[in-house]
C-alpha cells in the first residue's frame, strides 16, 4: 500500500483526473455541451434601450468609445426614415457592433476593478433571494463568451447584480460611480473618480425673468449633453446649438454659455453598458447575428 512510486500514478494523477471528470467534465456534459456557446455578437444582438440612451446623453464620450458611433442613429435621427430605409439596417448593425464592443470592454473592467469581489451575479432559490434580486438564471443563460470565467462572485458587500440591467437609469449609474453616497446614502462603495474626465460643456442659463417668477436661482445652469475635451470644441458645439435654435426663440441663444465640466470616460460607458445588459439576455434570445 505504501509503495512510493505508485504515489505519482494513483494519487498524483488518478485522483486529480477523477475529480476533474466528476466535477468539471460531468457538469459540462450534462449542461453546456448540449448547445453551442453563444458568441459576443449573439449576446449583444438585442441592443438595450439604455445603451441607445448613452449616445444621446454622452455623445462625445460615446463617439470616442465606439468606432461605429457615427452610424448609430437614434430614433430621433430616424424619425423621418421609412420602414425600409437602408439607413435603418445599417444603423442596427452599427449599434450591435458598438454594443458588442461595450459588453466585452465593460466586462473586462468589471473583472479588472474586482467588482465581483463585492457584487455577486448569483441569485439562489433560497433565503428570499428571488424577491430581493429577481430571476434565477439557468446554465443555458450563462453559456456565452462573456462568461469566461463566470462571475458568480464570492461575497455580498454590495447587492447582487444578476438582474441589474434596466433597473436603474444611466444617469443614476454615472452619479453613483462619481459619489456612491449621493445616490445611496450610507453606501461604503468607493468612488470611481477615474471613470470621469474633465472637459468643457455648453450650459443653458436661466432667463432672469422666469427665474424671478419661479424662484429658481439665476446661478442655476442646465447642461446640454456632451462634455468636450477642449474649449474650442465646446464653443463649436455652442454655435451648433445656437444655429439650431429657432428664430422665434432667438433670446434663448444669448443664454448659452460654455463652462468647465466633467463627464464619464468611454470606459465608464462600457461598464454602464455591461451593467445595463446584465440579466437581459437569456437562452430564449439566442439568434443568429445578421451577416
Amino acid at each position: 500500500m505504501d509503495r512510493f512510486t505508485s504515489v505519482l500514478l494513483v494519487a498524483g494523477l488518478g485522483c486529480f483526473a477523477l475529480a476533474f471528470v466528476l466535477s468539471g467534465l460531468y457538469p459540462w456534459l450534462i449542461t453546456d455541451a448540449k448547445q453551442t456557446e453563444a458568441t459576443i455578437a449573439e449576446v449583444a444582438y438585442n441592443v438595450t434601450t439604455e445603451f441607445k440612451q448613452l449616445k444621446e446623453m454622452y455623445p462625445v464620450a460615446f463617439a470616442d468609445a465606439y468606432p461605429t458611433a457615427d452610424e448609430c442613429l437614434t430614433d430621433r435621427d430616424l424619425a423621418s426614415a421609412d420602414d425600409d430605409d437602408p439607413r435603418r439596417a445599417q444603423s442596427d448593425d452599427a449599434w450591435r457592433a458598438a454594443h458588442a464592443f461595450a459588453l466585452q470592454a465593460g466586462r473586462d473592467t468589471y473583472v479588472a476593478e474586482a467588482c465581483w469581489h463585492c457584487h455577486s451575479q448569483f441569485v439562489r432559490p433560497v433565503a428570499n433571494e428571488t424577491q430581493r434580486f429577481g430571476r434565477i438564471r439557468v446554465p443555458a443563460d450563462e453559456n456565452n463568451a462573456l462568461q469566461r470565467p463566470m462571475m458568480f462572485g464570492t461575497r455580498r458587500v454590495g447587492p447582487d447584480l444578476t438582474n441589474e440591467g434596466g433597473k436603474r437609469s444611466n444617469d443614476w449609474h454615472v452619479a453613483h460611480f462619481s459619489d456612491p453616497t449621493g445616490t445611496s446614502p450610507g453606501s461604503i462603495m468607493p468612488a470611481y473618480t477615474w471613470f470621469f474626465r474633465d472637459g468643457h460643456q455648453v450650459f443653458r442659463t436661466i432667463d432672469p425673468d422666469s427665474a424671478e417668477r419661479t424662484g429658481i436661482a439665476t446661478s442655476r445652469r442646465y447642461p446640454v449633453p456632451g462634455v468636450y475635451a477642449t474649449q474650442a470644441d465646446a464653443e463649436a458645439a455652442l454655435q451648433r446649438a445656437s444655429d439650431a435654435t429657432p428664430d422665434n426663440l432667438s433670446t434663448e441663444r444669448k443664454r448659452l454659455v460654455v463652462g468647465e465640466s466633467e463627464g464619464p470616460t468611454p470606459n465608464a460607458l462600457n461598464v454602464i453598458a455591461y451593467l445595463q445588459w446584465l440579466g437581459t439576455w437569456t437562452d430564449d434570445d439566442r439568434r443568429e447575428p445578421q451577416q
Binding site: 475529480a19 476533474f20 466535477s23 468539471g24 457538469p27 459540462w28 449542461t31 453546456d32 455541451a33 456557446e37 446554465p139 450563462e142 453559456n143 456565452n144 463568451a145 462568461q147 469566461r148 470565467p149 463566470m150 458568480f152
Partner: peptide
C-alpha cells in the same frame, strides 16, 4: 486555462471551484 478558453458559464464556474 479551462475557464478562460474552453469552458464558459457554469461548467467553467465548476472548474473554478475545483
Amino acid at each position: 486555462t479551462l475557464p478562460e478558453w474552453t469552458l464558459a458559464g457554469t461548467s467553467g464556474a465548476a472548474t473554478v471551484g475545483l
